[in-house]
Simulated scan of single mutants.
Amino acid sequence: MPLIHLEEVAKETFFGLWKIEETPGELEKQLQLKEHELLVLRSLQGEKRNLHWLATRVLLRKMLSTDDYIDCQADENGKPVLINLPHQISLSHSYDYAAVMISRDKKVGIDIEVIKDKIDRVKHKFLNNYELNFINQEHKLEHLYACWCAKEALYKLNGKKETSFKDNIRLDAFDYTETGKISSRIEKDGAKMKHYTVYYRKFENYMLGYVNED
Rank of each mutant, 00 (worst) to 15 (best):
P2N: 15
D172E: 11
K11D: 14
A150F: 03
F15G: 13
V40G: 06
T197G: 01
L171R: 04
K125I: 03
T66E: 13
A191H: 08
P24M: 14
P86E: 12
F14K: 10
I102Y: 01
L6A: 09
Q88D: 11
N84G: 14
G159P: 04
A98L: 08
G209R: 10
R121S: 01
R185Q: 14
I89H: 10
L31Q: 01
N129E: 09
L27S: 11
A74Y: 13
E21N: 15
L39Y: 09
L41E: 11
S184D: 06
L41K: 11
K125G: 03
K192E: 15
V122R: 03
E76M: 09
E187P: 00
K11W: 11
A10L: 14
H93A: 08
S164C: 04
Q88K: 15
S43C: 08
I182K: 02
Y196F: 14
N128I: 02
G78R: 09
A153E: 01
F126T: 06
Y130M: 00
T163Q: 11
W18F: 15
G190L: 05
L51T: 06
Y196H: 11
L27C: 07
S94C: 06
L82T: 05
E26C: 05
E26H: 10
D67E: 12
D67S: 15
L171N: 02
H139C: 02
R61H: 07
M207H: 07
A191M: 07
R42M: 12
C149L: 00
K125T: 05
I119G: 01
D214R: 11
K62Q: 15
V40Q: 13
K156P: 09
V114P: 00
I70S: 01
M63H: 09
Y176M: 05
G190D: 06
V100Y: 01
Q73T: 14
E7L: 07
V122W: 02
V40T: 07
T13Q: 13
L44T: 11
E8I: 09
D111T: 03
S164Y: 04
Y200M: 04
K19W: 10
K62H: 14
K118I: 06
E142P: 00
Y145L: 09
A191W: 12
E213N: 12
S94T: 10
V198M: 07
S92M: 12
S43V: 10
K116F: 03
Y145V: 01
E21M: 13
G190E: 02
A74K: 15
A153T: 01
T197V: 14
